[in-house]
Nucleic acid binder design. Structure first.
Lengths: 201, 201
DNA sequence: AAAATCATACCAACCGGTCGGTATACAAGG
DNA sequence: CCTTGTATACCGACCGGTTGGTATGATTTT
């Protein structure tokens, strides 16, 4: 087989195995040996493709953030209206929890690692701020188009992101505790109710 | 000195040192030796007072949850109105971030540990569910007293807790990224705006 | 043969936890 | 008051096991 192709495959095998382990056991509790075992590869191959365990983690982080980017952009582009866009995003939550709930624990892993590791923090914080800016832009657009009433867009965006982050966290910790898809849907609806422009209070 | 009193002091020294280390470096990255160094005791003393490193962690968790309990109950009791109670709780956020911001990273540590460790999960999830129930009760009370319009109390409570959790998370990751106290205040205000009872939309 | 890819064997460091032993306080008995 | 006994608090060297990472050789492809 083509060696480059072969190399790429082992690489992705390692990535997939690492993702699974990190999500299931956590970063520290996952040994390189275990990753290799699951990937059907030896340590030699592992350290041929990645300089360190952390490098694998960071690449996983990058990829995850990239998919988030794409999803957000797609939803916004497909909606005619800011409220509609937000509601659709909320609607995605339920589906996400069902379909790739297995990959979600990585989110927590990223977050908690970033709190202590400067490199991970660097890699996390900048995309995160982009998301905040993204939602700020949405709120501004909503105000401009007249569907939202005048509020500080940054603050409103902060609240929206808080809702999202909190939703993911709770869904991770207590999946059976509630229908998180519904909570997301309804939470955004309530938030929108408070944001929608209307004559007077 | 009284030996029992002395014992209690070393015990609390260990607890304080461990809290600091866990918050700064994370649970796994913190060695028992480091905790002992900061506490000014030896390993012998450590394992005399605690059966394991995890036991220290769990005790820290218990204490933290107990203070949360007290604060919530106090605020609710002191408010004449559900919306007022929620707004006051939001107002506490800024103060909390300033005053004991140093202890907050433990929150993340608890959360991420709970995701992988059944014992920690057990210790975390039950108080957490109490909080959800607490807020559910508040929403129900708000509906009963007529200040909130009729919504599913469980769902609304889920949204409120999400906002809170997300707020803490963001404040932890990006303290300078925003005035989280203000975001909390305004976020709850918006949420309340969507929850308040009014004639017609 | 040169380069890329992977396997095997191995290491040095670290870490949670143990253990034999010491020091101090205190109560009882003489 | 002094001795003896005992429980608590504490010390610090040490151990078994694990882990991230490395060194080196084999194999395959071009």
């Amino acid at each position: 087989m083509n060696p480059q192709r072969r190399g790429e495959e082992t690489r992705s095998h390692i990535l997939r195995a690492a993702e699974e382990c990190f999500a299931r056991y956590g970063y520290d509790a996952t040994g390189v040996a275990e990753i290799c075992r699951r990937a059907g590869v030896t340590k030699g191959a592992f350290y041929h493709h990645f300089p360190s365990k952390q490098a694998v983690f960071l690449e996983l982080l990058d990829r995850w953030l990239a998919t988030l980017d794409a999803q957000f952009a797609a939803v916004r582009a497909g909606a005619k209206d800011i409220p509609e866009a937000l509601l659709r995003m909320a609607g995605m939550v339920g589906r996400i929890f069902e379909e790739e709930g297995g990959r979600l624990p990585m989110f927590l892993e990223f977050w908690s690692k970033a709190a202590h590791d400067p490199m991970v923090w660097q890699a996390t914080i900048s995309p995160y701020r982009r998301y905040r800016a993204f939602f700020t832009g949405m709120v501004e657009a909503g105000i401009a188009e007249g569907t939202l009433h005048s509020v500080d867009p940054e603050v409103a965006a902060g609240a929206i992101v808080s809702l999202a982050v909190g939703l993911v966290m709770q869904g991770l910790m207590d999946p059976q505790g509630a229908d998180w898809g519904e909570v997301a849907q309804e939470g955004v609806r309530i938030l929108l109710e408070g944001l929608k422009s209307r004559e007077k209070e």
